[in-house]
Design a protein around this nucleic acid. Structure first.
Lengths: 251, 251
DNA sequence: TGAATAGTGTCTATAAGACAATATCCC
DNA sequence: GGGATATTGTCTTATAGACACTATTCA
């Protein structure tokens, strides 16, 4: 793979004369579905839109991809700027680019999703007046997929701007799929947790009850958990042992 | 969700004056990893580059996203234009957008992968002189992930342009994951096939041997297969029964 | 008849669901 | 002790791996 100096120069000349704008250039954004599980349901944060289109509607936090950052970098920045969060689980989800998905023009969005525990989630949701905590209502079972609905604390359905209800639906679908074979559930809990708390998280995400004993056996056998020896505090019954997530292990 | 006429007009005025190019606009392309399984290995097609950068190197077939099409539409078009293929399994994979991934400037690519059976694959690879058939060498096990290598028929490693070796690696990883719980393996076979042929496909994709009896039991129990009653023809041993893919069934 | 692969039977190991017994803590 | 939940034991069922046996076709 050696190139001569003259070839290098020819290539440099070619590239400096190359005009990418000969081809149409869409705008590219990133939207982030920040998700937590608490009180028996999944929740996300939205921002109330201040401008057209969809003025007053709720939308996922997002931003334009800058020229010096990858879409994944943009997602990190959006989370930091809009929710004050750093170092959380964040993954690319899917790229949505239907020609008319944004009335302002051609905008392609690289959707991401992020997971945090309820404590960090609440801090993020309360930090900025624009950000609101919404309950995710999943109208399908298993990994069927499709758009979800958002509702406020009173169960009132909240309209969602753009195709963001579909983005959230895909995040839930991805989450359900990942939960079966990865330790992703830990991302939704504080550092230390009981096995029952972990089970509740799985039940919320999956949208169904799961067997207690089988769940405990599987989790402990997975080697992904480490018992701390400490016990729950301040409960009016037998306190459960606290576990924490342990790096990796054999599959 | 009712809007008054004056609000409509205000919104229309706002949108007509909106200039998306206030924010930097990258170029957006689609690259397609067309994959088949045959002769004990996975194969893909590449195109030899005629221009800088990476002149003479092999690259995945791709194209710019037009203003009137979604990236997924672009992938369909690329497959048709460059490989003459229509109606094949095609799915979005991941969006690659590192700032310097293309020396020509800011180019974000929405990578896709497609699956065809060897017959259609060969027809696609031979249709156009620019297109070449490459063997995929996976240097990792399971779903570890990472870039793959390409080699020609003689086992000689072929250099791959841009980040396309990573795109192919992600396609293999995705394929391995999907095979565990979806009927995606059928996409790599002709309409009718024997159970052993199906097993070989799974073994090629997964990169490991699998148990014959367990595989047969699982496949038949899945309800995804339908026996045709016909037998293999022209083999010098007991002919196997031919099956075909049957729609969906219970999970 | 022999070669070669198809297809089946069966034993074992492992994992999951069901259910209940026992353990432990707080009041 | 009573209430409440944690934790464990065990039975049953389903599934996967291992291995070998029988079946069928063609040369």
């Amino acid at each position: 793979m050696e190139a001569s100096s003259t070839r290098d120069q020819a290539e440099a000349a070619f590239l400096s004369g190359y005009d990418l704008s000969r081809f149409p250039q869409p705008s590219v954004t990133v939207d982030v579905a920040l998700i937590t599980a608490t009180e028996g349901a999944l929740y996300t944060v939205t921002v109330q839109r201040k401008e057209h289109p969809f003025t007053g509607w709720q939308a996922l936090p997002g931003g334009f991809v800058r020229l010096d950052e990858s879409p994944d970098d943009t997602a990190v920045r959006v989370l930091a700027e809009k929710a004050g969060l750093q170092g959380v689980f964040l993954e690319q989800l899917y790229t949505f680019g239907a020609p008319r998905r944004d009335p302002r023009g051609r905008v392609i969005t690289v959707a991401h999703y992020a997971l945090v525990n309820p404590e960090r989630f609440r801090a993020a949701a309360q930090g900025d007046g624009d950000i609101e905590m919404m309950r995710i209502v999943v109208p399908w079972k298993g990994e069927t997929g499709g758009a979800v609905k958002l509702s406020d604390r009173n169960g009132v359905t909240i309209p969602v701007a753009f195709d963001h209800a579909e983005i959230l639906g895909m995040a839930v679908k991805r989450l359900r799929g990942k939960l079966e074979y990865t330790p992703i559930g830990f991302q939704l809990l504080p550092k230390r947790f009981t096995l029952l708390e972990l089970q509740r998280i799985h039940e919320i995400v999956l949208g169904r009850r799961i067997n207690k004993n089988a769940f405990r056996r599987k989790m402990i056998a997975s080697g992904m958990l480490k018992a701390t020896g400490e016990l729950q505090d301040g409960v009016e019954h037998r306190p459960a042992e606290l576990y924490r997530f342990a790096r990796r292990s054999a599959t």
